[in-house]
Design a protein around this nucleic acid. Structure first.
Lengths: 206, 206, 206, 206
DNA sequence: TATGAATGAGCTTTCATTCAT
DNA sequence: GATGAATGAAAGCTCATTCAT
């Protein structure tokens, strides 16, 4: 915990942040280490003082980004008493994430998937990071649902399958976001989600 | 006059097929034209007699693959009279597609997304191919649902929102497949889908 | 002199003519054998039945073109009685050659120079073709001048240096054409030449 | 902060010089970037740290060479008082330029013409460089002639057509050099030029 | 520690030429 | 004789990484 270490951590984050914006703008492959260095305001060689490889920059930057996403999710939903409102707030957040312009999340997700599936990809041997993220989101939804059950707002019988229900909800959100990103029919997107969520809430309400 | 006439279309398909397996194994970017040529059992230069660029090989190979997927989907579901059975057959097919080992669909989808989102990607200016595929799947589900309504098996009121319902179902399937591909918990996958589908069918049955 | 040989010669000329237009349009390097074959209406492989290499096509085509140039020059100037008119007709011809649009002579000349000077170039070991062309032009001018002397139209003393005078006139014409091709000031070109020729004729007239 | 600072300009010139010798030896097209790198004693990739493309190397090298030619011309003729001597010094310089062995100017000029005339050539959209060079030479000759007129050494009436006269002289020199380069009759070259220049000087002297 | 100069493996693409039919 | 399918050498260029300073 010497001051040097603090500096080092800070520098690492600076580089990772600069890199994230570039990755989200141009994609992982199309972003060169030189560009990252330039964006971070340091020399190309200096990048390698803080990261052993471009791949590590990606992993670090994505990890930070995911952590930040999760924290914001938790914060926004933590203090809402009404379970229905809390659930809706969560879904709003999901929608918001996709509407961020910079850094563009769809390119990041495309790169993450790529790097997760391809042998030798940056996340190929670290899919636990991606899995953990999904698990955390799942836990959050489970928490909201069980809270609703305990407050007698949601049907008690959903408690038994709460995990499955949470995963299915998240899967739906994932899929519909993908659909929207590809189809580019922004205007219908909200309607589409609202339609599903309405059915979902009806289904779980007592 | 014409001494050595090769079936161009066949050769194109041979190369595209060889390429598809490599793309699905190592990813588009990591597959070199030389490797494609080798896999197709021809020289590097010969590839360029049939395709103007690596990008076109990708587009062609993916397009063929998608067309094949769609055709198989349509075939398998076309002749089933019972709407519920037909819907379930469709979902079975979706599950099956993901369980193909070679060419690995998850990697192909990751590459497709990548090449669709990234500026200058192979599908960046051809997303209509991807959109058309999704639209075709949507039409199929809509068809199944309306068929069910007309046969008085499904609730008449779903007709009004049939398009939304179809998209939401497909989005869910998309999302849950992605979830399964990332989480690698194959054993729970079937249960998970069945759970959702059971709820879905209950919801639409008269 | 069998009919087959005649056919062969004809075919060779067809290919060479097609090639010449392409060389003059796109340059030697940028013209592929495939394009030549296509322009000649034959298959790529057939070209090699008539020429051993692309280089030989170039040499043959250029040689034909030069021969044609020379013949046209001789024809146009042969029957003019008045030496001054004959000289002017020759110079008119030179001007005309450069104004041909297709095949563009400046590109051909640039390619010829290139292939003459560069070691291993198509004309590197055949500069005699180029030299002969220049010698023929020189002979023509010498002939015109001596004819003028014998007709007492031109000063008798130019006979002694007639060869030098001819070469210098041709060199000037060469140079001014080059100048015009590079500077692209077409309108001044005629004036420029006329100015020089007027001085030249004044100088050699009795 | 800046540990290894190389004089970029110097390195650029080193590469350009190495390239110029190769271009003059083998021609632009036949010279590969790898060969340039080797000749400059650096790696292939390093070349691209200093030049964005092979084309730019050519343009830079040729431009430097031309500038150097012009400067030497100006220097050699600047301080000569006697207009006739000055004119002769200029012509001597022209002769000398062609007698340089390395880098061989005839090959460079052949490449320049090539790259100027061919669409997409390195000088195709930069012919102003070539035009400027010719204009500068023209200005120099004009300057010599007008200086001679003002010193009452040359006829006053040449002042009116001084530009035409200069261009014609340069055109002749251009053409005769070309002739000599192609015909390779070095021994007659000097005589030939002297013969023309003698006539020229007689014509412009008072 | 910070740097940017240097690098070369590796990429996609071109095309003159060969040759089986 | 005519063909076009096949080829691979060679090109220009990119960029993650190394390393001397």
């Amino acid at each position: 915990m010497s001051p040097k270490l603090v500096d080092k951590t800070e520098k690492i984050n600076e580089i990772a942040t600069a890199a994230l914006y570039l990755f989200a703008k141009k994609g992982y492959a199309a972003t060169s280490v030189e560009q990252i260095a330039e964006a971070a305001g340091i020399g190309k060689g200096t990048v390698y003082e803080y990261f052993p490889s471009k791949e590590e920059i990606f992993v670090h930057a994505i990890n930070d980004w995911i952590m930040d996403l999760i924290n914001r999710m938790l914060e926004k939903t933590r203090d809402i008493e009404n379970p229905v409102e809390r659930l809706k707030a969560f879904i709003e957040m999901v929608k918001d994430v996709l509407n961020v312009e910079e850094p563009d999340p769809k390119k990041l997700f495309a790169d993450i998937d790529q790097q997760t599936f391809m042998q030798g990809g940056a996340f190929y041997k670290r899919r636990h990071i991606i899995k953990d993220m999904r698990a955390t989101f799942c836990d959050l939804v489970v928490d909201i649902l069980l809270d609703g059950v305990s407050k007698k707002v949601f049907k008690p019988e959903i408690a038994r399958d709460v995990s499955k229900i949470a995963i299915n909800l998240l899967a739906y959100l994932d899929g519909i976001c993908m659909h929207y990103l590809i189809m580019e029919e922004y205007q219908e997107f909200e309607d589409q989600i609202d339609f599903h969520v309405k059915g979902f809430v009806d289904y779980i309400l007592v």
